[in-house]
Amino acid sequence: MSVLIYVNHNNDKIKKSTFETALYARKVAEMTNTNEVIAVSLGTISDSSLSVLGNYGVTKVLSDTNPLFDQFDAAVHSKALAKASQEVGAKTIVLSQNSNGKAIAPRLSIRLQAGLVAGATELPTILGNNFTVRKSVFSGKAFADIGILTPIKIVSLNPNSYPVVKGEGTAPVEAFNSGVTASDVKVRVKEVKTLTDSVPLPEAELVVSAGRGMKGPENWGMIEDLAQALGAATACSRPVADVHWRPHHEHVGQTGITIRPNLYIAIGISGAIQHLAGVNNSKVIVVINKDPEAPFFKAADYGIVGDAFEIIPKLTKAVKAFKAQNG
């Protein structure tokens, strides 16, 4: 009996989403009367980088440093993860619903004949044999409680859904041989291109987003200044990406990416339902728009009605003053 997590790492660094899954798994372990949270790491990473998982409730790390894993193929990762799960007798497996998790979790579900809740937002409710997990449905417009009916359960946790609090402890790292060989690799990664130097949008806790109200790409300087002052990622609405004012990877909304940051500041975005579908799970929404009738104000926690071109520089100044004071 144990709870297993999958480690997301890059350049010898563990991603924040993994700390979320570790703490979530720790809680599930307590709820299911087991002490063991085992993290499985695949690919090149040092033991010292992995042992910090002990700070987040992990009791043991299994690491297969075979460099085959460094180029992502969901089939290979899920095969190795299934093997580790079977060896340790994991009853619950927790992944992050990010680009890798979305590819691995469904494959793992078939391999282990284990029910999957993809996009979980809360801890499970466990009553006897009933294991129910809440997830976001209808593009953020509702929640559904999904019962997992199989003996092994897989939970793929939405990023930014579980708080990260660093604790104490180190986790022993053991070598793990997943038995994966080069012939298992079917998807050949030719190149990985980085599109942003700052925090990737899906992982950002603070996001500054702007739309057609900015009138043209030449006016994005003030948006970037505000984002930089806050330490936020930048995003945009669909029309802005469609006319190439901003790159497509910044487009949030139904056909773009879905984000759930702690703070979403929408500037000059009216708040069409398709846009809201991508952001309405954000914890706090601020809307700045000169049209007091903009529908986005109905979904906002805080609003400023006025001209963005006047407000944004003042806001950036206020952020800098705040940062200077609060370090």
């Binding site: 992502f72 050949r188 190149e191």
Partner: peptide, 12 residues
């Protein structure tokens, strides 16, 4: 394929 903060170029 889109990944967090980048893209992967693949062959299959």
């Amino acid at each position: 394929r889109e990944i967090e903060g980048g893209v992967e170029e693949l062959e299959v």
